[in-house]
Amino acid sequence: MSHVDPMWTEEARALRESVRTLLARRSGPEAVRAAMAAPLGYDDELWSTLCEQIGVAALAIPEEYGGAGAGLAEVCVVLEELGRTLTPAPMLGSAVLCGQALLLTGNDEACRRLLPGIAAGSSLAALAWSDEDGRWSPACEFRDGRVDGRAHYVLDGDHADVLLVVARTPDGPGLFEVAPADARRAAVTTLDPTRRLAVVTVSNAPARRLDTGGFDTERLRWAAAMALAAEQTGAAARALELTVEYTKQRRQFGRPIGGFQALKHRMADVHVQVEAARSALYGALTGDDFELDAATAKTVCSAALRHAAAEMIQLHGGVAITWEHDAHLYFKRAHGSSLLFG
């Protein structure tokens, strides 16, 4: 295991600062709510700026496919910052999940054809995979050149222009490309309004197999889970910051409520969990057992965000359950993301 945290190298710090500065200007609470209500479920102009000026979608894509040739650590830096502000964006679904899926196929032709658009942010890709039970076993089946099935929890699936499908085959799961016009796609109401999900149904749809057999769905799932863990860590840290700020301002019995020992202890407990999440994420990025370390990070970071969001609600009091305050959005993100990818 490396002793250098790849999320805090000099290059990673510069990337973090660039993303945070842009989001501070363009993704405040009002902008997040406007993005939630937008037809795409995110601010496409902000996403274009993130891709064109900072290159966030290209980070984990090799240079020969139009990417920056960085790695998951840099992706995690971006997702941590997006998580802090709850910014709706197709980073997790298109750039990470679909980008990594295509790379795992080892199909040079498909990568050259599809990855440059994903890296530039000009193409939006979606991956149809999970059944309704959320266990992330393939919901669709491939037979005689066609795919059948209904996939749930498809990130940005209702408006993607590249549709990938994980389907069962006689030799195990495979990755297939289906024309979006050959699928029925419908956005669904979600617990977390900052995360766009869809149901994708394919009925005897022509499909092109992209992998050559032995498609590693477990590695794909845990790579996505690691990226999600970074997002959860950022959201948990920001929820704690907002809570500490509020307890310094809110006065009761003639003093700020943050000065009461009982509340100090509760916020200290949240801080411990946030730091545990950072440690778990560091372990996943530098450890030797990718799947185990990624699963650990997802578990620890999910728990940290749930705890931070719950305490945010409790310590803010009545204002936290109003629509105008962000606390309920952090709470919904906490519980929605804890179920994503299992």
Results as ranks from 00 to 15, higher is better:
Ala12Phe: 12
Ala14Glu: 12
Leu15Phe: 05
Glu17Tyr: 13
Glu17Trp: 12
Arg25Ser: 13
Ser27Thr: 05
Ala35Thr: 10
Gly41Phe: 08
Ile54Pro: 00
Gly55Trp: 02
Ala58Ile: 07
Glu63Asn: 03
Gly69Ile: 03
Ala70Trp: 08
Val75Asn: 04
Val78Gln: 03
Leu79Phe: 01
Glu81Gly: 01
Pro90Arg: 01
Cys98Ile: 02
Gly99Val: 04
Leu102Arg: 01
Leu104Asn: 12
Asp108Gln: 03
Glu109Tyr: 10
Ser122Trp: 07
Leu124Tyr: 00
Leu127Lys: 05
Trp129Ile: 04
Glu132Asp: 11
Ser137Gly: 15
Ala139Asp: 08
Arg143Ile: 07
Asp144Tyr: 08
Gly149Ile: 05
Val154Pro: 01
Leu155Tyr: 00
Asp158Trp: 04
His159Arg: 11
Asp161Cys: 08
Val162Leu: 00
Val165Met: 04
Arg168Cys: 13
Asp171Glu: 13
Pro180Ile: 01
Asp182Gln: 09
Asp182Pro: 07
Ala183Ile: 07
Arg185Ala: 00
Val188Arg: 06
Thr189Gln: 13
Thr189Met: 11
Leu191Thr: 12
Leu191Ile: 10
Leu191Asn: 11
Pro193Phe: 05
Ala198Trp: 02
Ala198Lys: 02
Val200Cys: 06
Asn204Ile: 01
Asn204Trp: 06
Ala205Thr: 05
Asp211Tyr: 06
Gly214Met: 15
Phe215Glu: 01
Trp222Lys: 00
Trp222Pro: 00
Leu228Ala: 12
Ala235Val: 06
Ala235Asn: 05
Ala236Arg: 06
Ala237Cys: 10
Leu242Ser: 09
Val244Gln: 14
Lys248Ser: 15
Gln249Gly: 15
Arg251Thr: 14
Gln252Pro: 04
Phe253Lys: 09
Phe253Asn: 07
Gly254Leu: 12
Pro256Arg: 15
Gly258Glu: 10
Gly259Asp: 12
Leu263Cys: 07
His265Lys: 11
Asp269Ser: 14
Val270Tyr: 00
His271Asn: 13
Val274Gln: 03
Tyr282Lys: 08
Gly287Met: 08
Glu291Phe: 04
Thr299Val: 09
Val300Pro: 07
Arg306Asp: 06
Arg306Glu: 11
Ala308Leu: 12
Ala310Tyr: 12
Ile313Thr: 10
Val319Trp: 12
Val319Glu: 15
His325Cys: 11
His328Gly: 03
Leu329Ser: 02
Leu329Cys: 03
Tyr330Phe: 15
Phe331Thr: 05
Lys332Ile: 06
Ala334Asn: 05
His335Glu: 13
His335Ser: 11
Phe341Asn: 02
